[in-house]
Amino acid sequence: MAKSKVVSIETAIANVHDGMTILIPGFVNIGVPETLIKGMIANDIKSLNVISNNTSVKGRGIGLLVHDHRIKHITCSHIGSNTETVEQVVAGELDVTFVPQGTLCERVRAGGAGLGGVLTPTGLGTPIAEGKDIINVDGKDYLLEKPLRGNVALIHAWKADKMGNVVYHRTARNFNQVWATAADWVIVEAEEIVEVGELDPDQIMTPGALVDQIVDLRGVK
């Protein structure tokens, strides 16, 4: 019998500490692990390095961390959907490194897949290329983009079984699947938790072997 990884949100968030690098998925505010984010805020966790695609919208999701100035540095592709983040960046209150969205995915994938980086044409001839190695393969130039990893990944699942096999839903899958591969500790919040064996093995998008803890959102909301 597989051991259950379902824990309380307090038990899960006890693994997150000030100053950590946190992988947070989501596109605008879809597929964002908002309950786990609120758990970090309840524990007053701060000085975070966040790797995410964007910062949700004002007052929601990652925007809650922005509002409280809990993020020291963010690596992301876009902040335009959250006016508060833009204001903080323009005012010099929040340090941001912009990475093209596809490159961000590939860098985190490389981090989770044991690769030393990826070669991509994206960003050639732009400010993104400054200071990076350009490698020519069969006559075509590529930028060398290095891997990214986090201490903790916070994941939003549609369904999870008790050993952490995960299914995502529609476009809420977005960055969750890759982000779950590239952290030392992976915490999943799930809209629904089912018994081991109930999920079709071909439908599982993140294997339970990668997941450390699961929080049942039905018990939190």
Partner: peptide, 8 residues
């Protein structure tokens, strides 16, 4: 300072 998103 919106960022490039997926445009690049």
């Amino acid at each position: 300072a919106a960022g490039m998103g997926g445009a690049m």
